[in-house]
C-alpha cells in the first residue's frame, strides 16, 4: 500500500519535472511575442495560473475544514493546512508577478482595483490562518484552524463585492470575453498547458505534504507505543 503510494509519487514527480521544462519551452519559444506589450506579456503564463491555483487551494482548505469538523479525521486537517500553505505561496507569486507586469504596461506598480485588492486581503487572511495555526496548542489546533479556514473563505466573495465599488483597472478576462478579446491560438494553447502544469504542481506538493503529515503522525504514534509499557 505505502510502497504503491511512494511509486506513484515518484512517477508524478518525474512527469511534473518534464512537463515544467516543456512549459518553459512553450512559453519562451513557441508562444508568439505580444505586439504591444512585448516579452513582458509572458508573465501572464505564470501570473494567471498562479492566481487560479491560489484560489483553488483556498477553496480546498475551506472544503477540508468543513469535512474535518464533520468527520474529525486528522487527514482532512492535514489537507487543509497543506493546501493553505501552498495557496499562500502561489498567492505571493501572483502579488509579485503582477506589479512586475503592471509597471511597464500600466505605468504603475499597484492600483486599488477589486482583483488586486481582494488578492492582497486574501493573502493577509491566509498568512493569519497559518500564523494562528502555528501558535495553537496541538490538541485544539485542527478544530480551531478549521473554523478560521471557513470564516476566511466565506469572506472572499464579500471582500470582492465591497471592493468593487472602486473603479476597475485590471484587464478583463481575455479567454471567454466578447469580440476583440481573443487570444492567438498558440497563446491560448500555451496558457492552458501552463494552467494544467501549475495545477499538477499544486496537486503534487499537497500530496507530498499530506503524506509527510501522515508519516509524522505514524512516527509519533510508534514512539508513543514504545514508551507505554
Amino acid at each position: 500500500m505505502n510502497r504503491n503510494r511512494a511509486l506513484i509519487d515518484s512517477i508524478l514527480l518525474i512527469l511534473l519535472g518534464a512537463l515544467m521544462v516543456a512549459d518553459l519551452f512553450l512559453i519562451f519559444r513557441f508562444a508568439p511575442v505580444e505586439r504591444t506589450m512585448g516579452p513582458i506579456q509572458k508573465i501572464f503564463y505564470f501570473h494567471v495560473p498562479s492566481a487560479w491555483v491560489a484560489f483553488l487551494a483556498f477553496f480546498v482548505t475551506f472544503l477540508a475544514s468543513v469535512t474535518y469538523l464533520v468527520t474529525k479525521r486528522e487527514s482532512h486537517d492535514c489537507v487543509a493546512s497543506s493546501s493553505a500553505a501552498v495557496g499562500m505561496l502561489f498567492c505571493t507569486i501572483v502579488l509579485v508577478t503582477g506589479p512586475i507586469w503592471g509597471k511597464p504596461v500600466w505605468g504603475i506598480w499597484w492600483t486599488w482595483d477589486p482583483r488586486l485588492t481582494s488578492t492582497l486581503v486574501l493573502w493577509f487572511i491566509y498568512v493569519a490562518y497559518l500564523l494562528i495555526r502555528s501558535y495553537l496548542p496541538g490538541a485544539r489546533r485542527a478544530t480551531l484552524s478549521a473554523v478560521v479556514g471557513i470564516f476566511g473563505f466565506l469572506n472572499v466573495p464579500l471582500v470582492y463585492m465591497s471592493i468593487r465599488w472602486w473603479r476597475t483597472q485590471h484587464p478583463q478576462p481575455v479567454l471567454a470575453g466578447g469580440e476583440g478579446s481573443g487570444l492567438d491560438p498558440r497563446m491560448k494553447l500555451v496558457f492552458f498547458f501552463s494552467l494544467f502544469v501549475f495545477t499538477l504542481l499544486y496537486y503534487v506538493i499537497v500530496r507530498l505534504r499530506v503524506r509527510l503529515g501522515s508519516l509524522e503522525a505514524r512516527a509519533s504514534r510508534l514512539l508513543e507505543e514504545r514508551r507505554l509499557p
Binding site: V121, I125, L136, P137, L144, V148
Partner: peptide, 23 residues
C-alpha cells in the same frame, strides 16, 4: 475566542480580525 487559545493570547486578534472585516 480562537486567538485567546493561542500562545500569544490577544496579540493575534487584530492580525486575523482586520483582514476579515475589510468588507
Amino acid at each position: 475566542v480562537v486567538t485567546a487559545q493561542t500562545k500569544m493570547r490577544g496579540v493575534l486578534l487584530p492580525v486575523i480580525l482586520f483582514p476579515m472585516i475589510v468588507p
